[in-house]
Design a protein around this nucleic acid. Sequence first.
DNA 1: TAATTACCCTATCAATTTTATAGGGTAATA
DNA 2: TATTACCCTATAAAATTGATAGGGTAATTA
Lengths: 136, 136
Amino acid sequence: MLSKRAKYAIKTILFLHENQRHTPISAKVISEAEKIPYKFLENILRDLKSHQIVKSLRGAEGGYSLAKEPSQISVSQIMRAIDGPIALIPCVSEKFYEPCLECTDEETCRIRKLFGILRNEMVSILDKSITDLASL
Amino acid sequence: MLSKRAKYAIKTILFLHENQRHTPISAKVISEAEKIPYKFLENILRDLKSHQIVKSLRGAEGGYSLAKEPSQISVSQIMRAIDGPIALIPCVSEKFYEPCLECTDEETCRIRKLFGILRNEMVSILDKSITDLASL
DNA sequence: TAATTACCCTATCAATTTTATAGGGTAATA
DNA sequence: TATTACCCTATAAAATTGATAGGGTAATTA
């Protein structure tokens, strides 16, 4: 299941996308509009910023804005930044690969192929950009 | 991520499948062969049985066996029996539908469609039976 | 029918993850 | 220089996950 953090993150990005202006949008505004606890949101924004999905500007009239073209921001990027791997088992993850502890041999693992296929299919869907969401 | 319980469950089913005999296989044998803590396995087997994926026979020489044809047992069935929904958000789950608490209107929800498509695609892959696994 | 083997049920628990809160510090702008 | 907003660390309640414990019940074999 998607974590609440990831859901909040996606909502935040969509909010920034739908309310793009010349000036950035403050965390407080996002927090109230999307009903995300303020301090929790700050923490999420920090992750989104460190992954170059949003950028920030300090000071009065400061706030957050998207760090790149909306068409270049995918749902998978957001999910990875917040929750980590898309894959359901670590040994088929591309960006967060880890061997399965209890698995002695990946070649002969009976479930690895299926979950590899699953991962690829999930990624191909989640790679859609946030501008694509409207036209599904 | 797949829970350890679900991984154990899949391994259990595959073990039963690969070691089909006329007599059932005891939990103890499965536990040792697949390195699953005995009492933990008992608990998993209970769920698998209540979902009619395995059946059991009591007494000396008793144990577990598959409750139906291997070709009729899918990975998705096992996952649902153990972990619940396949979908990443509850409002697009078919077997475990629940409204998203923070979502006021499913029709206008900006992420619902994408995760609905994702769910369908995941299910279509996970619906493969345990006999299909070998030929991927 | 007694001993054995294996399934069944409930309770408990430690570890981890998730969700959230608190408080103060730093940088930039009006 | 006051204000606004971002930055950082610590803490903690709640939920989930993974596992253990112990005894009870049913069925088979000798």
